[in-house]
Design a protein around this nucleic acid. Structure first.
Ligand SMILES: [Mn+2]
Ligand SMILES: [Mn+2]
Ligand SMILES: [Mn+2]
Ligand SMILES: [Mn+2]
Lengths: 217, 217
DNA sequence: ACATAAAATTAGTCTTAACTAATTTTATGT
DNA sequence: ACATAAAATTAGTTAAGACTAATTTTATGT
């Protein structure tokens, strides 16, 4: 149906479209795919031809209904495979993204649905991201970050916004995973660093950027 | 490591090398991959450069030790994924080959071994083909075909040589699968057609070609 | 309003892996 | 031994998807 590149572009555009009030420009897509903007302009042309996206110089790139539907299906496959790799094959959560990045492109009409059933219809992937259902419906994503909390609040880690190995390994070192309980003790007003307690243990200080990449419940 | 095409060529050359006394020519590879011989000549050059094969106009194409090792690993991945698709996701044996044809190219250092473990270290794939071990050792493949039997012999279906949908669906219709018991009642001397009893039920006549594609125990 | 910077686009190049058509080499039958 | 057929190879083309470098368009600060 689609080429590997087309699918990666669709997924990247979808991901960017999740940031509210964000204009999806060729440069933004290029950064997200680590591609050259010139290459992106070519692909924008191709996907526009195929009626998967619309490009308005003022409003940026937008997925058409068809493009959106198919982008969501790719995300569905990605996240289902991530669950499989972690739950069934015993990978750690910082190893699964890159492999799922390849597995998501396996095209077979019933594969995703069979995998979904085999895994017990999981609602969230190992990073806490919602797994779109076969009909395209998406469980509510988490939206409050650790950085949004008030001093004294306690929360449960629900998801991570950044799935890079370096971030996930840092979390591992801090003993933070999905479900971990965190209490915000203090916000350093100088640079918005956060002083937190992890699972009731000793205090740690993390950066604002760190806090913005943790979604909580 | 390798491109998709390189891997498909390696695997195809390996498969052809399994036929004893068969000279692996550009034309043979082209047929097996449904490619043009001119394209094959290009790839032979490339794989020779990379020291994965040797090409002697007299002896044809041969895998080098490195090429053989890696071809076997691709076959290993293919057959493990086939087991997964059948056993865990409930596909039928005529649906799995094409999907495994894509899955076999997923490159991750530990994926095959984890999958192997998850599946309980199966020795044979759903078509009865031996699954190479992580160290490259290959369980003994079956070699006697239904057409090799003498009149009156009874056997167990161990593997199929042809994994095309049309052949497998024909088998399905005849109620033949791995493990089915078959008795050879008569060999028609005119065209070597075979009269057989399947699982002790009514008689059926099949062609010589059919018999040559069933490996028995 | 204008200089300058940033972003977008165009033009042209490269690589991979296919193809067709033409040519050369090898095999085969009489 | 030679004609003919088949196989292998070469030469040239194409398409996808990336790139760089040059140019044009748009945004921004003074
Ligand atoms: Mn991908
Ligand atoms: Mn994920
Ligand atoms: Mn393949
Ligand atoms: Mn098989």
């Amino acid at each position: 149906m689609y080429t590997l590149s087309e699918e990666n572009y669709l997924k990247s555009i979808y991901r960017l479209s999740q940031q509210p009030n964000f204009k999806i420009t060729p440069t933004a897509i290029a950064e997200s795919l680590k591609n050259n903007p010139a290459s992106v302009v070519d692909m924008i042309r191709k996907l526009t031809e195929k009626q998967l996206i619309e490009y308005d110089k003022k409003k940026g790139v937008k997925l058409t209904p068809v493009g959106l539907k198919d982008a969501v299906l790719i995300v569905r496959r990605h996240r289902l495979w991530e669950v499989f790799l972690l739950e069934k094959l015993g990978y750690h959560w910082d190893e699964i993204h890159d492999i799922a990045e390849e597995l998501e492109h396996i095209s077979d009409a019933t594969l995703a649905d069979r995998l979904d059933k085999f895994l017990g219809f999981p609602e969230y992937d190992p990073h806490g991201d919602p797994i779109p259902k076969a009909n395209g419906k998406i469980p509510k994503p988490y939206s409050v970050t650790l950085a949004d909390l008030k001093t004294g609040d306690t929360c449960r880690v629900a998801a991570v916004k950044d799935t890079s190995s370096s971030f996930l390994q840092y979390l591992q070192k801090l003993d933070i995973g999905i479900g971990t309980s965190i209490k915000l003790l203090e916000k350093i007003s100088y640079d918005n660093s956060l002083v937190i307690t992890i699972n009731g243990k000793e205090n740690t200080t993390v950066s604002q950027k760190f806090g913005e990449n943790i979604l909580v419940d």
